[in-house]
Each structure stands twice: as structure tokens, then as C-alpha cells.
Nucleic acid binder design. Structure first.
Lengths: 230, 230
DNA sequence: CTCATGTCGATACACTGTATTTCTGCGAGA
DNA sequence: TCTCGCAGAAATACAGTGTATCGACATGAG
């Protein structure tokens, strides 16, 4: 009677907790998008009945909130930047990177207030280097403006990326040549400026365009921080 | 035998078309949010079997796209602004107003490329006054940056508004006093700057804060438009 | 040893988006 | 006028969803 004959103890699954649930949900979402996350599938992945989850989570939306906070752990920079501009920039870029790793994040970004511990830590890290550079209201406006920008920019980038994947064409080529609806519309002559822009514009990669817009916004913030409040 | 005795002709419902379907869906969403929109309910509101809709729409997502384009008709300004700054500002403010009238718009904004005829018209109106002020790529970046800003800002505003409605407390009061989780977190001292901001910040109304951030971004755009491209 | 309790699983319900099948009314040919 | 074919509409069907409820079972107290 060797080890091989003896059956393994029935591998009692690790005790359930929020962390394991959230991890399973994130994995599912990474693989198949947000819509692939169902409580039944999450439970199945943990070898557990669906109803078990309700001991740790009271609704599916709550699970989504936890998932968002979970990726904020990846967003939090390992070393706290000392300069305000760097802090805001890092927040933006790390959020974007997280969204490229977890595309479903784009669907949730900005959809509800993010108040989990990791999200608060990120906010703190972003806010700290701004402290004292202007009155609190201006500081608040600064981080809100920047985060509005990158929330919107990330959403659009992911939306375009999905559209490209679905059609197999880059956005510009698609608008220009193939998109049957769009090209017909442009051909009507009702949108002359748009047609011109689509025709003459060069294709810029998403990261550059994200970064460029971000620096513009950061410039605007800089102008308000250095000037004393009105 | 008077009119009253004679039964009305069975009020054959107006012939179905996309417009009627979209209108019904928008009405449903206005009343109960996006999640209240189901193909069955839309069909019921039109006195029609659910499957009829598939003659006009091939998937639910398509219906959402049509809804978004429908509200872009409200966003399109009646008189085309002549100055680029006014055009961008109007685009932002009218989108925000539309989102306040149709809160579900916030859930869809930026979620997928908007290429319906009304959306294209809005883009054209925004783009036209910028034509020739800089090279096309800069112009493109300008409108994308502004629209990233207001997309994100509107989403956050609606998200906060819903949270306030759900808790009956304003965001700041809630963070400060009541939010059991947040106030406990702030009390830990792990987020000193955040705590300070929450404590010292004054409550600004959403419209002002939206407008202020917008003007900052517009200033940034102005700086790039007047300067020749690098 | 019994009984209460509280946790877990199975079952149940109302609903979803959509595919498929069934029916029905109408126009063409005999 | 009657019948047949066919298109378009309706009903049904299916595989899933989030979540409420209920029944069994295991465990700890008396």
C-alpha cells in the first residue's frame, strides 16, 4: 500500500473568503469579459454552490465593486512619487495599463464611486504631493479633472480597440474605406470637416495620444496651481 | 345606434419602425434606468410580440446604440457656434444636460464608438469651427481630449448623484460623517491628505465643478491651437 | 441522548435574450 | 370560388441569469 494507492484526502477546498471569490471573478472577467461573470460560474470555479457566495457578498454589483478595488492594488505605485505632476501622471498611466490588462475595467470605470481601501490608497498617493500647493478646493478640482480625463480616454480607447478587433480593421481605415455605414455618410457631403479630418489625419498610436492629451490637461492644472486662487 | 355603441376600429397600432422602437426603449430607460429595458418590455409597450423587434434590430446592443444616437439629436445645438471654444463648450454642456435628462446615457457614454447619424452631426458641428486653426492631428487631439474630459466628468457626476440618492446624503456629508466604511477608513490615519481634503473642502455644486474643469481643459487646448505645431 | 441552532445545498421563481417552430391570413392559379 | 403556397407574425422553447426560500444535516449545549 503506497501513497499512490491511498486516495488523497478529498482536497477540502481552501476556506471560502472574499479574496478567493474576487480572484475567481477577476479571472473569469479577464478571460471572457464582464458578461462572462455570473455568480454561478464564479461559484463553480470555487467548487461551491451559488448561494454560498451570498455569505460574503450581498449582490452582484457589490462583487463588481470589489473587483474594481482589487485592480486598484495594481494601480497603486510601488514608490510614492514626490512631485504632484508625476503623481497625477502615474495615476493616469497605471490606470490605463490596468485597463489594458483587464479590459472589463473600462466598463466599470467611473460607473460608481470607488471607495474601497485600495482605491482610497491610490487617491491618497495621488493627492499627497498636491497638498499645500493651493487651497483644497483647487487641489480637489485638479485631481478630479485629471481623473475625468483619463477615465474618458481609457473608455474610448478600449471601445475602439474592441471595435477594431470585431471588424479586423483599424479605426481610421475602417472609417475611411470599409465601415459601410460611415463611409456612405461621409460621402453624402453633410460632414465636410469630419470627412477631411478622417481623410487627412495620420494614424497615431493610442498610447501617444493618451499621453499627449494628458500632458495638456496637466499643463492646465499647473497653470492653476502656480497661480494663487482667484 | 350612436357612435358610442359602435366599437372603435381595433386601433391597429401604428406600423412598427425603428423610430417607434427606440422611442419606447428610451421612455422605459428614462423611467427605470437601463436595466428596466428588456426586449420583452419594449415590445409590450408597442403591443407587439418580442420577436417582432428582431425585424428591425438584430441585437439588444444595437438597440442601445440607437438610443444613444437618438439623444444625440438633443445634443446637437440648434445654431452652429462660430468660435471653436464655444463649440467645444456647448458640446460638453449639452451632453451633460442630456445625461441629466437621461441618466442611463452615463452608463453608455464612451462605452462604444458612436457613429450614428446624429452623433456624426454633433461631431461635425464641434469640429467645423476648429478647421484650419492647426494641423488636423492637433485638432483631432483637441476634440478628443475635451470629450474624454466630459465623458469622465459626466459619468462621475451621475455616479455620485445615484449614490446620494441611495443614501439620502450628499457625497461630502456622507464621506465625512455617515459612510460607515469610509469614515472608519479615514479615521485610521492611513489617508491623512484625503482626510484633510474631505474635512476642509467646501461643497461645490456639480455644474460649477464641471464647468470649471472644462474651462481648464479648454485653456490647455487654446494654448496648443495658437502655438504652431511642434 | 435529545434538542436547538445555524450553516449549506438544492430547489424554485421570475425573468432575460434569442432560436425555432407553429400558425394564420392573403394573393395567385385553377 | 376554391385551393394551395408562402410570407410574416405569434407562440413556444431553451439555456441561462440573479436571488428567495426551504429542507436537511451537522454540531454544540443541556
Amino acid at each position: 500500500m503506497t501513497v499512490w494507492d491511498r486516495p488523497e484526502p478529498p482536497t477540502r477546498p481552501a476556506p471560502l473568503d472574499r479574496a478567493r471569490i474576487v480572484a475567481a471573478a477577476v479571472a473569469l472577467a479577464d478571460e471572457g469579459g464582464l458578461e462572462a461573470v455570473s455568480l454561478r460560474k464564479v461559484a463553480a470555479r470555487l467548487d461551491v454552490g451559488p448561494m454560498r457566495l451570498y455569505g460574503y457578498i450581498s449582490t452582484k454589483e457589490e462583487l463588481f465593486d470589489l473587483m474594481v478595488d482589487e485592480v486598484h492594488a495594481e494601480i497603486l505605485p510601488e514608490r510614492q512619487p514626490g512631485h504632484w505632476r508625476e503623481a497625477l501622471r502615474v495615476h493616469a498611466h497605471r490606470t490605463r495599463q490596468a485597463a489594458l490588462r483587464h479590459e472589463w475595467l473600462a466598463d466599470l470605470l467611473g460607473g460608481r464611486p470607488t471607495l474601497g481601501p485600495n482605491a482610497l490608497a491610490v487617491t491618497e498617493a495621488t493627492l499627497a504631493p498636491l497638498d499645500g500647493l493651493a487651497d483644497v478646493d483647487t487641489v480637489m478640482r485638479a485631481v478630479e479633472t485629471v481623473s475625468a480625463y483619463f477615465t474618458g480616454a481609457i473608455r474610448r480607447e478600449i471601445a475602439n480597440l474592441r471595435a477594431e478587433r470585431a471588424t479586423g480593421l483599424s479605426e481610421r481605415d475602417w472609417q475611411r474605406a470599409s465601415g459601410p455605414h460611415v463611409s456612405r455618410m461621409l460621402a453624402t457631403g453633410r460632414f465636410p470637416t469630419l470627412a477631411k479630418v478622417v481623410h487627412d489625419g495620420t494614424e497615431v498610436d493610442a498610447e501617444t495620444s493618451f499621453a499627449t492629451g494628458l500632458e495638456w490637461v496637466l499643463d492646465a492644472v499647473a497653470a492653476r496651481l502656480t497661480r494663487p486662487p482667484a
